[in-house]
């Protein structure tokens, strides 16, 4: 699937949100370290999964890669071009090649716009087509996402959740992008509708040669749709590998716990399974734990773990992990 050509290179990327106090004079009293130094490549035409608990920084990572948030530190190369150095028109031109699909198909479409206007928005923003061309393109896009082109003048509320997500997908592919960040594109959908949308995303990838960063909670679906998977914890990536390698041989204690927590729709398997139950909640990203950030919940933590941050390194065959015990 991937011919190992790097499309997106992320290097030491950080995004901190300042916490300020004071009414007249705002002063910074701290920061939410939402994304705190992540490094990885995304290959052309692959789907890279990004998983982890709520609040670990997945959405922030996706938005910062697309420069919808400007990074606090680090670089993002798209096709070899450093996006973090671009401004104005140059950045706008690059953005046309990178799009995002959002989690909530209800909130992400403007209720007062027709489907035609919603889908053609990127075409107008990037001045890619005349009004007549826009209509033709919208009809073509609707066919691509398997919606009836006659729906063109309807409004979002006239569609089901699955159909709205298709509209969101049509908008994302309108400007012929190379790269799409899919932020939980199916979590708000019914089980029987999820497979429809996932198959559509896979078909479009094949037809249009797309590269996806696929952010999701559902680790079963991630195993199905992704080529490689990155596991995030408190703003950092703790493990990354080809998907079957990661799911069959997880090395990081957090990945092991996360995967063991996913229920399997098979009672015989469930009765045999060994679940690793993590204690407590994810700590706050404002004051993350010292050393290895997972040490407060890790059953295998040693003294060293709270003192020294484990290095991010490759253990072979494109399998990366950050843990002192591996």
């Amino acid at each position: 699937m991937s011919d190992n050509q790097v499309l997106v290179r992320v290097e030491g990327l950080k995004k901190h949100f300042p916490i300020t106090r004071g009414i007249l004079i705002q002063r910074q009293v701290g920061a939410v370290r939402a994304v705190d130094g992540i490094t990885f490549d995304i290959y052309r035409r692959e789907t890279l999964g990004l998983v982890g608990e709520s609040g670990c920084g997945k959405t922030t990572a996706g938005r910062t890669i697309l420069q919808l948030y400007r990074p606090t530190a680090g670089r993002v190369f798209f096709n070899g071009v450093d996006l973090t150095g671009l401004k104005g028109n140059e950045l706008r031109r690059m953005r046309q090649r990178m799009q995002m699909i959002f989690q909530d198909p209800y909130a992400s479409l403007n209720p007062r716009m027709t489907i035609a206007r919603i889908i053609s928005e990127p075409l107008r923003v990037h001045k890619l087509a005349t009004p007549q061309e826009q209509i033709e393109r919208v009809q073509e896009l609707l066919r691509l996402v398997r919606l009836n082109p006659r729906f063109i003048n309807r409004y979002p509320h006239e569609f089901s959740g699955g159909q709205r997500q298709r509209i969101g997908i049509a908008r994302a592919i309108a400007s012929n992008p190379d790269f799409i960040v899919c932020d939980e594109p199916i979590s708000a959908l019914d089980v029987s509708i999820q497979a429809q949308v996932v198959n559509l995303l896979e078909d479009l990838q094949d037809q249009l040669g797309l590269t996806y960063l696929f952010i999701a909670h559902d680790l079963s679906m991630v195993r199905h749709i992704c080529d490689r998977v990155a596991v995030m914890y408190l703003g950092q990536i703790v493990e990354l590998a080809e998907k079957d390698e990661l799911y069959d041989h997880p090395l990081h204690p957090y990945t092991q716990a996360l995967l063991s927590a996913v229920p399997v729709p098979d009672p015989k398997v469930e009765r045999r399974r060994n679940r690793i139950i993590l204690e407590g909640d994810v700590p706050s990203p404002i004051n993350p734990p010292s050393g290895c950030r997972f040490h407060t919940r890790c059953a295998r933590a040693q003294e060293l773990c709270s003192q020294q941050e484990p290095a991010w390194r490759e253990v072979g065959g494109g399998h990366f992990v950050a843990c002192h015990l591996v």
Binding site: Q196, S220, D266
Partner: peptide, 18 residues
């Protein structure tokens, strides 16, 4: 049941849909 991918199995095939 057929449309569900599984965390404990490698899946190469297209998902069955309703």
């Amino acid at each position: 049941l057929k449309s569900l991918p599984r965390v404990d199995r490698s899946s190469k095939e297209r998902l069955a849909t309703i």
